[in-house]
Design a protein around this nucleic acid. Structure first.
Lengths: 273, 273
DNA sequence: AGAAAGTTTCCGATATGCGGAATAAGTGAC
DNA sequence: GTCACTTATTCCGCATATCGGAAACTTTCT
C-alpha cells in the first residue's frame, strides 16, 4: 500500500510526496506523525517541509486539530493546470451547448499516463454515475466509453503499451480478456465512436468520440453519459453525429498553426488583481 | 511586475515559485529561459528543478516546443484540495439540486486571504459570465454578490482588515468608495443576502447567501448567477428563500460535533482504480 | 550555412537540508 | 487534579544535495 518507493531524496521530491499524501487523505487532513510514518521520514523533516509548504500557501494547517491539508492556493493553482492547448477553454462552450441540447451530462477526458482524467463535465438534468466521477477523477485507460475512445485512437505503439500495462488493472470492470478488449478497440476505430449499452454501471450508458490531433491521434474524448433508455437505436446515431461534428470543430481549433488562436477571449482580468 | 521578491532559498520554495509561474502562463506553457529570468535564477538551476517536477508528474514538458506547463497530476490533486471540512462534498448535491430546480448556475465560494475563491460551480442552461469565472478562480473579496456575502459576515476585525486592504483593489469594479461599500455590507447583513441588479457585467445579475459557522461567521457563500431578467421582483424572494434554506442545511452538516458526520456518503470507490 | 539563442550536462564549493536529541505542547488515564 | 504518554516543535553539528559557472549540444532565426 504505502508505496515506499526507494529513495525520495531532494526536499522537493519530499515536498511533492507530502502533497500527494495530503491529497489522498483530505477528509479531515493528515497529522504530522502519520505523514512521517507513511513516507518513512522523521518528524522534524516533515515538520520543516510542511512549514515551508504552509508558508508558500500550498498547505493549510488547522491549528486546533493539528491537521494538515492541501491549501486553497494549491487549489487555485492546480485548477489552471489541465488545460493543454487551451483544450478545456475551447471545449467549455461546446460542452455547455451539448448538455443543453442533448439534456445529458457531457464529459471531457484526456489521457494521463495509463489513465484517463476527467478534465471537465457539464451536468445534464439526469443524475448519472460515471467511472471518472467528478472533475479531476481518474479511470484506467480503456474502461468506459470516453476512456476507450482515447485508447482506440492512440498511436499504435502507445496503444500497445497501454494495453499491456492496463490489462491486469481491468479485472472485474467489464473487460473480460485481451481478445474482447482488442475487438472493442477495433470496433471503435472502425465506427469512430465508442458506445456500450451494456453499461457496467446499472442503467447507465454512454457514447464517446475521440478528439484527434493533426496526425489523427486522440488527444481527448468528448463523452455523453446518460441512462440507458436515452441511447436507443433512434437516438444514438443522432447523438454520435452531433458529437462527431463538435469533435471535428475542436480539432480545427486545436490547430496551433493559426497565430490568432493565441488569445482566445481574454474575459476580464485573469487575476493579478 | 516580476516580483523579484528577495530570497527564495530552498529548492522547495523555488519549485513552488516555478509552479506559480507556470500557473500564470499556461496558455501554451513557459520556456526554461523565461522562467529563469523571471525568477532570477540561472538556467541550470531551473532546469534541474523542472526535471524533478516533471519526474514527479507535477509539470509536463512538450518536448517539441520545449515548453513547460502544469501537469495533469496537479490537476487531479486540485480536485482533492479545496475541500475544507468537506464543504465541497457537502455542497455538491445541493448545488446540483439548485441548478436543476432554479435552472441557473450555482457557485460555491470560500474566502482565501483577501480573495474569494470559486470552489465549485454547477452550470445551468443559461450561459453566464461571472467574476470568479471557473472553478479555482479568484476575485477580490467584496466584489460580486457571493464575495460580498462572505465579507459581510466575517468577524468584525477581520472584515475591517479586509476592507482596509481591499478598498484600493476595488477601483473600477463598481465599488465607488468606502461609504458605498459599508452601506452595501450593512444592507447585506441586514437582509441576510447579497443581491445587485445593477450587475457590473452587463445583463448579468446574481444573488448570494452566506454559509455560516457556529459563531455566525461566514465560511462560504452559495451564489446564483443569472441573467438580470431572471431575478425580478417576483422571482428574487423565492430564490433567496431557497438559498437560505440550503445554506442553513449546509451549516448544520458542517457542525463537527456530530461524530456520524465523519463519513458522509462514500459513493463508489473514491479512486485507487 | 552561419550565427544566435536556448537547453542540457558536468563538476567543485558550499550552503542547505537532515535527523538525533531535547523541549514543549497536547491528550488521555486514573 | 496529577501523572504518563503521545505528538509537535526547536536546536544544532554533520553530511549531502543543491547551486551556478563553464562548456557541449540542440534548435531557431537570418
Amino acid at each position: 500500500m504505502t508505496s515506499d518507493d526507494a529513495g525520495a531524496k531532494s526536499s522537493l521530491q519530499r515536498g511533492v510526496a507530502i502533497l500527494r499524501l495530503l491529497a489522498d487523505s483530505n477528509e479531515s487532513g493528515a497529522r504530522l506523525t502519520d505523514i512521517a510514518r507513511d513516507l518513512g521520514l522523521t518528524p522534524p523533516t516533515v515538520h520543516r517541509i510542511l512549514k515551508t509548504l504552509v508558508e508558500e500557501g500550498m498547505v493549510e494547517s488547522d491549528k486546533t486539530t493539528k491537521r494538515y491539508r492541501l491549501g486553497i492556493d494549491l487549489f487555485t493553482m492546480a485548477a489552471r493546470a489541465g488545460n493543454p492547448n487551451n483544450l478545456r477553454d475551447i471545449c467549455r462552450p461546446i460542452m455547455l451547448r451539448l448538455s443543453a441540447t442533448l439534456r445529458d451530462t457531457i464529459f471531457l477526458l484526456v489521457r494521463s499516463g495509463f489513465d484517463a482524467v476527467c478534465l471537465d463535465r457539464s451536468e445534464g438534468p439526469f443524475p448519472i454515475r460515471s467511472f471518472t466521477g467528478d472533475i479531476g477523477g481518474r479511470v484506467t485507460l480503456g474502461v468506459g466509453q470516453g476512456s476507450l475512445a482515447i485508447l482506440a485512437f492512440l498511436p499504435d505503439e502507445e496503444r500497445e503499451e497501454v494495453i499491456r500495462f492496463n490489462l491486469p488493472r481491468m479485472q472485474g470492470v467489464g473487460v473480460l480478456d485481451e481478445v474482447y478488449l482488442r475487438t472493442e478497440i477495433a470496433r471503435v476505430r472502425d465506427l469512430g465512436y465508442a458506445s456500450r449499452s451494456t453499461g457496467l454501471l446499472p442503467g447507465m450508458s454512454g457514447v464517446a468520440v475521440p478528439v484527434l490531433d493533426r496526425e489523427g491521434h486522440a488527444v481527448a474524448a468528448l463523452s455523453v453519459g446518460t441512462i440507458t433508455e436515452r441511447l436507443n437505436e433512434e437516438r444514438l446515431p443522432v447523438v454520435v453525429d452531433i458529437l462527431k461534428r463538435e469533435a471535428a470543430g475542436v480539432r480545427r481549433q486545436l490547430n496551433p498553426f493559426d497565430p490568432v488562436l493565441r488569445r482566445p477571449a481574454a474575459v476580464l482580468g485573469s487575476g493579478a488583481a
